[in-house]
Nucleic acid binder design. Structure first.
Lengths: 226, 226
DNA sequence: TTCATAGTTCGATCGTAATCGAAGCATGGA
DNA sequence: TCCATGCTTCGATTACGATCGAACTATGAA
């Protein structure tokens, strides 16, 4: 079979766990630095750098320098499409081999996705915010809704300062444990920030899990109800 | 990253050259024996057997015993879809397996894509069908158009039986050699079926190429013109 | 029964690539 | 100018898995 392009080199790039984790992180559409991707993948900086060089050479990601940082994103929508197809096959084959580890239910309930809240609570927050019109979709883009200021106020988030930053305020991020969206972007990050700062929840050490206290969860649920 | 399905194990399966060759061979839609796949991949029988066991465990292929033989096929259209997407990315990145060989023009003209027609003729068919309103796009989805029944009738395809199946009738499939769409789905498969059955073309042995007879091509061209 | 063919299992070998620490650049801020 | 931070390169180590021959099993044919 010496016909056409070959799948092996590309698939092999996505087939290493560290690189796969990086690609998964980039699937959110965010551009991430080498350090952040190293964290996502659970490897050191040199290792991450080496992997990213390979991914870039293979045409899966594209990097741009910005000052001292190097931001990477998926090179192409076709790459994102490919990754989603692989995820689809993985999900189908998954239930044969998924053995939820001990920390897994926690992760499924609430976890950090880069710098914002993901998992069941993240998805529910996203949907509650849409129902409350704190955010809304317009022309396929996510933006602040008429009630956005009110909700930010409840949480003690200064929207003006946030909006002044160059970061996108609201961005949907696909949640692989729920197959639905949660909120990323500056506002998503600020919310997680407040949730932690107000003591509703804390980060688990060495994990992406976000552990809510009983009281914190009550407050959070109240927020969801509006 | 313990969230959701992981792309690494699946991609790694497709990332080994021997396994990738087997998968490419199976992309033709044919069921092949272990020995045949060993030949395709250029490895010995034990090696092929080991690879196929892994592919089967990973849910990428499915094997059935028939006498002394064990026939393998792709487990699922989703797997074929995934492989096509990888090919798409590979083609963009310019990862050609070899320089275009002698059999390449044939492949470029007409070939099997899992179970439907791809290549130049596949793309032209797709576009002719859209022009004739046998198919149309609506809300970003492909569906049967007002003239769909007429065209199916010309080819001797029973649309009712097809529509009763649970398979999607019309689906666009991206063509790596043309960078345009051709027709997949139940109707796409049925058309290739009729093209072969009516003697317009035949499958090349050991390749994905579809070889049209002079007369068959004339008929096919007439079909394109409507 | 005996032989032949198709495929699997086992064990040993061997390459490749992932990994990390340490050192080297480069950029931006003080 | 100096330092801190972000990233890359280098070199050595290590671990995993692809590979094959040989032996074994199963199916079919003579």
């Amino acid at each position: 079979m010496k016909e056409g392009p070959s799948i092996a080199p590309i698939a092999a790039l996505a087939g290493d766990p560290a690189r796969a984790n990086m690609l998964s992180a980039l699937l959110s559409g965010m551009a991430l630095t080498v350090s952040e991707l190293a964290g996502e993948a659970g490897v050191t900086l040199p290792t991450a750098s080496s992997h990213l060089a390979k991914l870039e050479a293979g045409g899966l990601v594209a990097g741009v320098r910005q000052g001292r940082h190097r931001y990477f994103r998926l090179a192409d929508p076709a790459v994102a499409e490919m990754l989603e197809r692989i995820l689809e096959v993985a999900a189908r084959a998954g239930h044969l081999r998924t053995r939820p580890g001990p920390g897994d239910p926690q992760l499924r309930k609430a976890r950090v996705c880069y710098d914002h809240l993901a998992g069941e609570l993240g998805v529910r927050l996203f949907e509650a915010m849409k129902a409350r019109k704190a955010i809304r979709e317009r022309d396929g883009r996510l933006e602040l809704g008429p009630k956005g200021n009110a909700l930010a106020g409840e949480l003690g988030i200064d929207l003006d300062t946030l909006a002044a930053g160059r970061r996108v305020l609201c961005r949907p991020c696909l949640d692989w444990s729920m197959r639905r969206h949660h909120l990323a972007g500056g506002l998503g990050a600020a919310i997680l920030d407040r949730v932690i700062a107000s003591g509703w929840a804390r980060r688990a050490r060495g994990s992406r899990a976000v552990l809510f206290s009983r009281n914190g969860e009550r407050h959070f649920e109240a927020l969801l109800r509006g």
